[in-house]
């Protein structure tokens, strides 16, 4: 199994979890925020679909989705939902960042686009949550 395949399979598992997490997140948000959550979830779904297609074509074992994912903390209100949204975007961004060194060409471009997009979404969620600063110096870098 190539390093690229492994990295993209990792990104796929992150996308599955992100899509799942937006379920409990969405129901706790205000209307405007819910719209943003729907858009964010759609982005994760689009990348999931593209990854499933790409990895299937590559001929390896595509990691399956799970019935559920453990949340890092209970989502009970708007504040915890926003906090989880920040974390979902940051962690998914980290998986795409990990794909950068092991990819080239169009794969590299796609991984970078995902990293950039999710980092920006994390910043937007921080703003909604009133978290400062709005940004981190190295988006996607493991803490």
């Amino acid at each position: 199994m190539s390093e690229t395949f492994e990295a993209l399979a990792g990104a796929l598992t992150a996308e599955y979890a992100a899509i799942w997490a937006y379920g409990p997140i969405g129901v706790r948000l205000s209307d405007a925020e819910r719209k943003a959550a729907v858009a964010a979830e759609a982005a994760h779904r689009a990348r999931r679909d593209a990854l499933v297609m790409q990895l299937s074509t590559a001929g390896g074992t595509v990691p399956p989705d799970r019935a559920g994912y453990a949340l890092p903390f209970p989502v009970t209100d708007r504040a915890s939902a926003l906090r989880l949204a920040v974390q979902v975007e940051e962690r998914t961004a980290a998986f795409w960042r990990a794909a950068l060194p092991v990819s080239t060409g169009a794969d590299r471009d796609r991984a970078l686009a995902a990293l950039v997009e999710y980092a920006v979404r994390a910043t937007r969620w921080r703003r909604s949550a009133g978290i400062t600063p709005l940004t981190v110096p190295f988006p996607g870098r493991p803490a």
Partner: peptide, 9 residues
């Protein structure tokens, strides 16, 4: 990649 993402944020 992180530099690009940071600048975007």
């Amino acid at each position: 990649g992180s530099v690009a993402a940071a600048r975007a944020t």
